[in-house]
Design a protein around this nucleic acid. Structure first.
Length: 220
DNA sequence: AATCGGTTCAACCGCAGCCTA
DNA sequence: ATAGGCTGCGGTTGAACCGAT
């Protein structure tokens, strides 16, 4: 179907936002909210398209944005979540309060990706799940339980990952690299069972599973 | 001081999916 | 069932910045 262009061929401004524009946008949203982004700039008196306003607000002006460098823990969380979710930046951002998908995407491309590439020849970082890479990871990347037995791959692809996609992570995944990272790297994670139960109302999977069944240590 | 190359990050673009009429 | 509108997402771009020479 044919879509109307976001920024109609009117003289809508593009490029960096000025302080004045920021002020207008913040003031308008504080007063009226942002129910309709398309109508917002017109009503607020901004010569911007709604899309541009939404982006500026969600990525920069929102009061709950956490500015500044990413902590090591945040970076590790991003790496781990990226391994599980792939380039689902918004899903990753949802697990890092105060961080935006754009910010995480930038950090990934400018920092973490390179860092991982530097460690690339170590087999400890499995390729992220990606629709663009249908090939299976090599056998030595299949996660194994702490007992050394291989996890059923379908557990990850059919049960765990889809659940994580939709799950509101208010429990902590506590990933903990054991240094030094050797070929048989161990990645540990833990799930606070009680917290998990708080959010399991609609998740049969969590209701029926004994967290004790989950591997808490995974050899990659 | 000038220039050059690399890095960062805000912003844009286009598509997909959802919703409604 | 379908067309059209809107929002959100991921990929990409380009200006600004920074350090090296």
């Amino acid at each position: 179907m044919v879509r109307a262009p976001c920024c109609e061929k009117l003289v809508l401004k593009k490029g960096p936002w000025t302080e004045e524009e920021d002020r207008i946008l913040i003031s308008y949203i504080n007063k009226y909210g942002y129910a309709n982004w398309r109508a917002l700039p017109k009503q607020a008196g901004l010569l911007r398209c709604g899309k541009s306003c939404r982006l500026r607000w969600t990525n920069y002006l929102r009061p709950d944005i956490k500015r500044g460098n990413f902590s090591q823990q945040e970076e590790e969380t991003i790496i781990r979540l990226h391994q599980m979710l792939g380039n689902k930046w918004s899903a990753i951002a949802a697990k890092l309060p105060g961080r935006t998908d754009n910010e995480i995407k930038n950090v990934w491309h400018t920092n973490l990706k390179k860092r991982l590439n530097n460690n690339n020849n170590s087999p400890n970082i499995p390729p992220p799940p990606s629709s663009k890479s249908p090939s299976k990871p090599p056998d030595d990347h299949i996660p194994q339980t702490s007992t050394g037995s291989e996890l059923d791959e379908s557990f990850w692809s059919e049960t765990l990952l889809p659940s994580l996609e939709d799950f509101d992570f208010n429990f902590n995944f506590d990933f903990d690299f054991e240094a030094p990272m050797e070929e048989d790297q161990v990645v540990k994670y833990s799930i606070d069972h009680e917290d998990a139960q708080c959010y399991d109302h609609e998740m049969d999977w969590f209701q029926n599973i004994d967290v004790g069944d989950l591997p808490t240590t995974v050899h990659i």
